[in-house]
């Protein structure tokens, strides 16, 4: 890599966090930490509040209680545009690109806070990481395939060389092969570069494979956490998430 992809990671911590919509908490009592060079994942059934939690970390959803910190800086209820400046890159679950803008323009917007001269250099670095985007720079983001679109969505946040990457179900709707490549090659790759990665992933098995530490969310709370090996040996986790069949989705 000619240009480093991301800055040295920073520790992301949430302490006693409660957050939700219209003053009503969807998640509460959340204390989590994500450290540099590692992948931290969040699993949990649909509606358990995974996306709400991530949004509250990056300033999109209001924090009602508790605090969020990146390194030594408090980012509790900081506007999203400033969270981006501090070095937290967030890829939402849906609406993750600007569909009418070209791939190149999406990347330029990703580098909005950079100097003009730096933007081109960064685009080259991002393209080195996601070479498939090279041949579609003028195509509109709305016309990309699911996998290409996710690469662009991640390329957009990499433009600012983030210290922390917050990714909400990047593999949703992707073909299994593409999903595996995205997780094992790219997302694991970010951590190997030294970034801090916090990832929501529905498919528990795939999540455990690339994670250093996993939080299990249920009904808006962390109900279980541990290293993959701990969770694989935890009968409740195995039954709820790895058992397959009806038991795999406890809340449905």
């Amino acid at each position: 890599m000619s240009v480093e992809l991301s800055k040295k990671g920073l520790v992301l911590t949430a302490t006693g966090l409660a957050a939700g919509y219209d003053g009503r908490a969807i998640v509460s009592g959340i204390t989590i930490e994500a450290t540099p060079g590692k992948v931290f994942s969040i699993v949990g059934p649909n509606g358990s509040g995974k996306s709400t939690l991530l949004k509250s970390l990056v300033g999109v959803v209001k924090v009602l209680e508790g605090s969020v910190k990146v390194g030594d800086t408090s980012i509790t209820n900081m506007p999203p545009e400033e969270v981006a400046k501090i070095g937290v890159g967030y890829v939402p679950q849906i609406d993750d690109v600007f569909p009418p803008l070209s791939v190149k323009e999406n990347l330029e917007i990703g580098g909005y806070l950079l100097k003009r001269s730096e933007i081109h250099e960064r685009i080259d670095a991002v393209l080195e990481f996601f070479p498939r985007l090279k041949v579609m720079m003028t195509r509109k983001a709305g016309k990309l395939s699911g996998g290409e679109r996710k690469m662009l969505a991640m390329g957009r946040v990499l433009m600012l060389s983030p210290s922390v990457l917050v990714l909400d179900e990047p593999t949703a709707n992707l073909a299994p092969m593409v999903a595996t490549q995205l997780l094992e090659e790219y997302i694991r790759g970010f951590a190997n570069f030294g970034s801090t990665v916090l990832l929501v992933e529905q498919r528990a098995k795939a999540a455990l494979r690339i994670s250093d530490h996993t939080y299990v969310l249920g009904g808006g709370r962390v109900v279980l956490e541990g290293a993959p090996s701990d969770l694989e040996n935890n009968p409740i986790f195995v039954e709820s998430f790895l058992g397959g069949g009806a038991a795999a989705r406890p809340k449905e």
Binding site: V60, V83, F98, Y112, R156
Partner: peptide, 13 residues
């Protein structure tokens, strides 16, 4: 960008 997706625009700084 703001027109296409305001939240994502904010997330981009």
């Amino acid at each position: 960008a703001t027109s296409a997706n305001k939240n994502l625009a904010r997330n981009s700084g």
